[in-house]
Design a protein around this nucleic acid. Structure first.
Lengths: 169, 169
DNA sequence: CCTGAAATCTATAGGTA
DNA sequence: TACCTATAGATTTCAGG
């Protein structure tokens, strides 16, 4: 990984913070918010994007609007922990849009998945298919999401020191 | 909840799909992509936003760029399952930006949290503080995220029938 | 759903401290 | 280096068909 560090000052962090919550704000309004004229603000934003600090922008969709839908959290333990087995599982995960979140975990659970399905029946049909795919899944646990309690952008700007800080893109 | 259903056709779903991945696409380019001129496309988008189907837009930030950071998945079980206890816990969750995801679950775990911290030490300090806050947490399990495997927009447009479908906003 | 046009925004050029 | 103003070209928004 290249570690050509980049200094981000308070203004850069503020730009990030604003766009994490209002991703489609116009560049001119953004400039107003951070007390800059449009050019330097535009240059800062371009830098944040080019450096890969801002990776992209996403519309956030209301699941309720499309409801009824079923969200499920699934924990997965694999049969075997050889690197090739992990790799095969992780590759397969990418092919299934139903799985929209997956993290590898330490501490007794190998993976945690977040699955979106029309209902529990189609969730189970999906899992049956996944289990039959020869991915070396030893066991899994299903936890239905009964209520989404909170979803907010990762607080990256709060975890960086108060003064300018090196960032590795 | 008002259930004034709204019909979404293929074009609307396509608009949603595109903006879920390219949230800052210009409206004129969006119109090009869905083979419309800019006015009707603009009207459709405005409707999706006004109806709350598209809730907002977010910049996606690279956690690696801000690294080293520690992501932790935490499962929580409460002492007591009275509605007031759930409510108190859920209210408290909102006040902590470190917790950027929280879902209420069925199946033996009450809540699952996603916590972002600078390192394991500050994660533990945060949890100690949360445990001392009198939220009725009986026990919790910590699973460090060793590798983010996948993150993609929820596939809402795939879960809706092929023809126009009623949506409740 | 279209065209057209005024208001606004974007991206760049050129200049100051 | 970091900021500014000015401006041509693109985009957004809306009126009218």
């Amino acid at each position: 990984m290249k570690t050509n560090g980049v200094k981000l000052d308070e203004r850069d962090l503020r730009i990030i913070e604003i766009l994490q919550r209002e991703g489609r704000l116009s560049k001119s309004e953004l400039a107003r918010r951070v007390h800059l004229s449009s050019t330097p603000c535009w240059e800062r934003l371009r830098h944040l994007e080019d450096a890969g600090i801002i990776e992209g922008y996403e519309a956030r969709v209301s699941l309720k609007a499309f409801g009824p839908l079923t969200q499920v959290v699934v924990t997965v333990e694999l049969e075997s922990h050889l690197p090739a087995d992990f790799a095969r599982f992780e590759r397969a995960i990418q092919d299934h849009p139903e799985i929209h979140e997956c993290d590898s975990l330490g501490g007794g659970i190998d993976y945690i998945l977040k699955v979106l399905a029309r209902d529990l029946e189609s969730y189970q049909a999906f899992m049956d298919q996944l289990l039959s795919a020869g991915l070396g899944i030893r066991r899994y646990f299903t936890y239905v999401v009964t209520k989404p309690v909170k979803r907010s952008p990762p607080p990256v700007t709060r975890l960086t020191g108060p003064e300018g800080r090196k960032i590795s893109p």
